[in-house]
Each structure stands twice: as C-alpha cells, then as structure tokens.
Amino acid sequence: MTEPMLTVKDLHAFYGKSHVLRGVHMEIMPGEVIALLGRNGVGRSTTAKAIMGEVPPKGEITFKGQRIDGLESYRIAHLGLGYVPESRDIFPMMTVRENLILGIKDMKKPGRWTIEEMLEMFPNLKERADNLAGVLSGGEKQMLTMCRTLMGNPDLIIIDEPTEGLAPKIVQQVGDMIADIARAGVAILLVEQKLSIALRIAARVYVMGHGEIVYEGTPEDFKTRADIRKEWLEV
C-alpha cells in the first residue's frame, strides 16, 4: 500500500468569527481522482483555499510527506501542488501564450509539456495563442487556466468549480479535458456541483455538509445512496 499523496487531518478554518471548516479529514493517493461534492456554502471551496494557504488553515495538511499548513503559497506550488481557483484568474491583458509562460515555475526545469505541446492538445487555445486572454469565452478561459497550472508540472491539481457558468456543450469539453489530465497521471481534487462530470471521472467521492465530510465512497456505492443525495446534495 503506497502512502497517500495528500493527507488532511482535522482541518478547521474561520472567516472572521464564523467557523467554516469543522474538522475536515481527507486523503488522496498518487494519481487518484477525487470529487468533492456538496451544496453551495458548505465549505468545499474553503477546503481548497485552506489547503493552498489562501485561507489560514488550522489542522494538519501533509503533502508528499511534508507539512504544508502555514507555508507560503509559492512554496506549496513548488512542492507540486497546483490550484485552479473558481475565479479562474487568467491574466486578461496578456496573450494566451504569455499566460502559459507564467505557469512555468522554473525555465531551467522543463515540465511534462512544452507550450507548443500544450497548444497542440487544445486546438481552441492554439487558434487564439496570440490573442489577449481577456477576450476568450468562459470555456476557453477555464481551459487556459487549467493548462497554465499544468505548465507548472503539478503532481496533484485542485480544480474548483470548473464548469460553473458554462454551456452544456462546453461542460462536456471541460470534463473531457479533466479526464485527459487524469490519464496523464496527475492526481485531481475536483470540487464540482455537477454529478454527471464528477461521477464520470472520480475514483472516490467525498460529500461535505456543514464544514465536515459527511460521506466517503466509490461512485458505484454513491449511486445507490439516495439518502445521502437527498440529505446533502439535492436542493
């Protein structure tokens, strides 16, 4: 049995006085795809932010055997943890190619993909390589932000709500892309609302409610648990 790549133990987080995460436990194995489900406001995005150090975490977060809670975000990134935030945060005044260049952490250490290879894989982006990123469509921006993080050669990538606000056809494309990333051997923590995408890709499912993990299981098991869906997911 190999060691988990990421271990989250008793993670708490606060926004001012409100106690948002109340002891989250989570494990991700190398190359594993995990879906983190739950209703809006239960703390899924905060979990992602706390792991990445954007929200001060209280608890124990270990990545590849090293404690990362309290580390500066660039150090966490250098350990091989990539983050695609919900806000996407592309650099709008730079071209698609320049955005990708900024994803490279160290020009002397080439990653899995070069910029040209990345553009070959995603023809929509290739067509727009020299356009300003700010004029891309929502789906293209989402692809760009994922590609940009991949340029940094992460071993685990946390993707927060990638399909939010996208048209159904584009949702399908983004889903395909996440499946491609998984096939390349990158572990993924996918924060997602849409069960169709999450259950198609994930090897394991976590459901959050009120700042805690309330269910953990395989997609097959999850499909039989109408009670969980009713209590924690359906509106």
């Binding site: 990445m52 935030p85 993080t149 940094g152």
Partner: peptide, 8 residues
C-alpha cells in the same frame, strides 16, 4: 494570489 499559486 494566483501568481503565488503558480509558484512565483
């Protein structure tokens, strides 16, 4: 924040 997450 994003630039930090990209490792800079």
């Amino acid at each position: 924040h994003m630039v930090g997450h990209l490792g800079h």
